[in-house]
Structure formats: structure tokens, C-alpha cells
Design a protein around this nucleic acid. Structure first.
Lengths: 197, 197
DNA sequence: TTTTCGACTCAAAAACCAAATTAGTCTAAA
DNA sequence: TTTAGACTAATTTGGTTTTTGAGTCGAAAA
């Protein structure tokens, strides 16, 4: 298990720097100071190593998100902590995500699977936040899961440029994303009319 | 000028069906029933034909959008007409856009230019809608252009899947985008709390 | 028994080259 | 002013060889 971690760490570094295709099994073996065949004792394929890395990163982010949300006192705070956490994690992972995305023309099924898992998680957590808001009497909506979905897409509209590596710019200045996110939350919660009240 | 239109139409059909690279100048010449050299009398290069097509489509969309918005009686209606028009145009153009995007690994500068032109246009029109809303006493915000920007990004979050060709799905059912867009506008205008009032 | 490795295979990718296409030009004629 | 046929130079294609790298195996070390 400890060895497995060791391999994962080595692989993560290399893949992050050079991309998945450019990183060879020999490279990983060398970085982990062991023979190539040994890797196959712990992992059944090169793809399997990537699968594990992605799975772990996913779990790490989910854990972070749950912790972040737990600390919020009301809907506003929870949403803010949620989006910020998500956001900084994505930024941190950005390069990684992109190199992999670019290389894997053919999207691997486990990446697709992880993406779906995350979609569900996002919806679950947002739905929960909305339901708690309703219980606290903050507002009343009929279909919280549908609302969660719309919120999620709206938020993604802002974070999308990060994933593609473009800068989000407004009036040709690069934008402060935390601030933008915060204002967007205000709009979503209170509406344009009341968002500055 | 009429000949130019004729060429553009021929080219548009072919490029739409087979993509930009697969369509040869001879193909276009044949479809327009003229010699290849004639094309070069009207256009300085193959790229130049594409440039003109894109520019024209852009103008057509902008015109449609202006018309749509002009018919709205209040902010809500204007935004709805705006987003719906945008949206259906994008869907119609989807295939076109995608084949070109896929082929032009290297993004051409005139496409980038058109994209920027559109960004500005979007901001301008949304800002105008918001300002008119303020004048009508519907709401009061400090920085309408910044708000226009946030609105735009939020809306893009919903329409993005169209551009990439994915279906936007919620709970594994494909979603009615007009309806989703409409609800999102409610949220943006009135806030979650009041969006169902 | 569990773990590691060097040496091997084979499928896929890179490198290479020749042949064919095709964007763009030119000259001349309608 | 507009059109076209013949031409060129650059790019793309298709087919071949070479190299690389994922994955296996059997033996040895721990």
C-alpha cells in the first residue's frame, strides 16, 4: 500500500509536468526507483495508474467541499464556501486537467465515470444547501434539485474559462474571480434588483 | 456583388457539409459554376471566403438580436427574447461552428476578432437592457456593465453544452433548454427566494 | 510466498519518402 | 471587367521502414 502511494506520487508529478502520453512507464519506474515490471505488480496498466490518481483527487475534492460547506451558517455562506473551494481546487488542478483532456482524444470511460460521479455529487450538495435554506425559512422553492442544477450551470459559466485555460476577462482586464463569484451568488440568491441592497 | 453572394452561398453549403479543409477551391468553383481563377478575382484567398461567411453570419445574428430585444416591453421580456434568439441561432449554427473549430487547430485571427466583436456586442446589449430597466424603475444597480458581464457568463453556462455538441442533461433526461433558460432568468432577476412568486 | 528485475514481444507511433492534390498565380482571351 | 486554362510551389496523402514503449514472462531475491 505504501509502495502504491509511492508510485502514485511519482506518476502524478511526471504526468502533471509532461502529460499522460509523454510520460512512459519507464519514466515512472525510474522516478519511483524501481523496475518497470514492478509497476505491473501494483497496477494492471498505465491507464490504471491514471484512474487511481483521478479517483483520489476526486475524493480529496469531495472531502474538501463537504468540510467547507459544513462551516457555513446560512445559504449564502454555504454557497460561497462551496464555490470558492471548488474554484480554487479547479485552478490548482487546471494544468493537470488540461493536458490530460487534450491528449485523450478518445475520452476514457473511467474519466467519464468520475465526471458523472462529480455531477451527482455537485447536485446533491447544492440540493442539500437549498433544502436547508428552505427549512431555515430563508426561501421557498418547489423543485430544489432543478434549482440546484441551474445554479450549478450558472456557476460553471464563470469557472469554465479556467478549465480551458483562458483568462476570464472583462473590459480586457483580467477579472477577480472570487469577487465575481461572490457577486453572482448575490444575484442568484436575491435577484438583480436586491443584490446590492 | 451579386456574384460574390453567389460564391458565398456555394461555399457556405459545401463548408457546412464537408468542413473547411475538405472543401477545395475547385469544389467551390464547380458548385458556383465558374472557373477556380474566378474565385480569386472576388476573394483574395480561401480563408478570405471563410472570413466573409463568418462576418456575415455574425451580422445576421446581431441584427436578429437587436430586433428581438426591441420588441420586449420590460427587462424580463427583453432578456428572454435575447437569450432565446441567441440560443436558437447557436443551435442552428452548431454543426457549422464545430466542424470549423475542430479543423482550425490554429485559431485564425479573424475568428478571434469576430469572437471579441461579439463579446462586446453581448455586453453592450445586456448593459443597455439593464440600464433601461433602471430607468423604468425596475431595479437599481451600481455597475450595469459588470452585471451584464455576470449575466452573460451565467447564461453561457447553460448554452455551453450546445457549442460542444453535448446534450445538457439533468437526472439523465435531456433538458428543455428554453424552459431552463426561462427559469434561470427568473432566478437572476428576482433571486431564488422570489423566483417562483 | 511475496516482490523485484532483465530480457523479451508486439502493436502502435514516429520518421521518412514518393506521388498526388490543391491553393494560389499568370497570361491571354472574351 | 470578368473568365478560364495552364502552370508552380507548397502541402497533403499514402505507403513503407524504424523506433518506441506498453505489457509479459520466467527466474531470482527477499
Amino acid at each position: 500500500m505504501d509502495k502504491k502511494n509511492h508510485i502514485i506520487e511519482a506518476a502524478k508529478g511526471l504526468i502533471g509536468r509532461f502529460g499522460f502520453k509523454k510520460t512512459t512507464m519507464e519514466d515512472i519506474a525510474r522516478a519511483a526507483r524501481m523496475g518497470k515490471a514492478t509497476l505491473y505488480y501494483y497496477f494492471k496498466s498505465k491507464e490504471d495508474i491514471l484512474r487511481e490518481i483521478i479517483e483520489r483527487e476526486g475524493n480529496r475534492l469531495r472531502k474538501k467541499l463537504l468540510e467547507a460547506v459544513a462551516n457555513g451558517r446560512n445559504t449564502r455562506e454555504k454557497l460561497e464556501k462551496y464555490t470558492f473551494t471548488r474554484f480554487h481546487f479547479l485552478r490548482e488542478l487546471g494544468v493537470y486537467y488540461r493536458t490530460i483532456k487534450d491528449e485523450l482524444y478518445s475520452h476514457l470511460e473511467f474519466i467519464e465515470k468520475e465526471r458523472k460521479k462529480f455531477d451527482r455529487f455537485d447536485l446533491d450538495i447544492l440540493e442539500k444547501i437549498l433544502k436547508e435554506g428552505m427549512e431555515a425559512g430563508e426561501f421557498k422553492i418547489k423543485n430544489p434539485r432543478y434549482y440546484a442544477f441551474l445554479l450549478l450551470q450558472a456557476i460553471r459559466g464563470l469557472e469554465f474559462p479556467i478549465l480551458t485555460g483562458e483568462a476570464l476577462s472583462f473590459e480586457s482586464r483580467e477579472i477577480d474571480l472570487d469577487k465575481a463569484l461572490s457577486t453572482l451568488l448575490n444575484i442568484l440568491l436575491y435577484g438583480i434588483s436586491r443584490s446590492e441592497a
